[in-house]
């Protein structure tokens, strides 16, 4: 059995960290009747790949001291990089969960997991080395990114996020003519990855050739 939701060799995250993230992001964007959630969309894989790259060490951020906490208006001031925030954060949240529920986060009930996530978000659960809020903010930001960014980054598998919204991805050359048209434009989404892998066609200008979804009797597809 694959130990994580998405078969992928993780470059930065440990198996336990992936299990934590799979559980957490699935609460943030859950699987429901509308479709798969963030776990199956590969958000943990997205986060791993971001952590392996330039952003994982805040390579383009200003990183000289002195470091001070600052006001909320002054923005991100932690001396920790995203790599460190995930590693230390997950460890400390699991320690908190062991203390309070006698279980790691991944084994809590969905309601308990929500309780912990809300606690982090609102500052009620604070961690030793960083603020719970900081961890939550980063996790939520990356979850949204991983669910809705182009699948080339490892998340949004099968364009789950785009199908949820009805976002067609790479634009079509037909948009210009459709600009003033009130008719609803529906199409199978096309990603950069699709085009790269030859799964979608492009026109002479490089725009995607969309396969339109036609609605009948006003009923939704």
């Amino acid at each position: 059995m694959a130990e994580t939701a998405v078969p992928y060799a993780y470059g930065y995250l440990s198996p336990q960290e992936v299990r934590f993230l799979d559980a957490a992001v699935e609460r943030l964007i859950p699987t429901d009747e509308l479709g798969p959630g963030a776990r199956d969309a590969g958000v943990s894989c997205y986060i791993d790949r971001q952590l392996c790259g330039m952003w994982g060490t805040h390579g383009r951020n200003y990183r000289s001291g002195p470091w001070r906490e600052g006001t909320p208006e002054q923005g991100f001031q932690s001396r920790l990089t995203p790599q460190e925030i995930y590693r230390i954060g997950i460890q400390e949240i699991n320690r908190y969960c062991r203390g309070k529920y006698d279980k790691y986060f991944e084994f809590l009930s969905p309601a308990q997991q929500d309780e912990v996530l809300h606690g982090l978000e609102q500052g009620a659960v604070d961690l030793v080395s960083l603020s719970g809020k900081l961890f939550f903010t980063l996790l939520w930001r990356n979850t949204e990114e991983g669910f809705f960014a182009d699948p080339m980054y490892g998340g949004n598998r099968d364009k789950i996020g785009w199908k949820l919204l009805g976002f067609p991805g790479v634009a079509s050359g037909a948009y210009r003519e459709h600009l003033g048209n009130p008719e609803v434009y529906r199409a199978e989404p096309v990603s950069i990855l699709d085009i790269r892998l030859g799964h979608a066609q492009v026109d002479a200008q490089g725009f995607a050739k969309h396969v339109r979804i036609i609605e009948r009797d006003g009923s939704k597809q």
Binding site: R27, I29, P30, D32, D114, E121, W140, L164, G166
Partner: peptide, 15 residues
């Protein structure tokens, strides 16, 4: 801000 209700709302209102 997140969770099932949020997911329903973004799916309904994006368009």
């Amino acid at each position: 801000r997140w969770g099932a209700q949020w997911k329903k709302a973004v799916a309904h209102y994006y368009r």
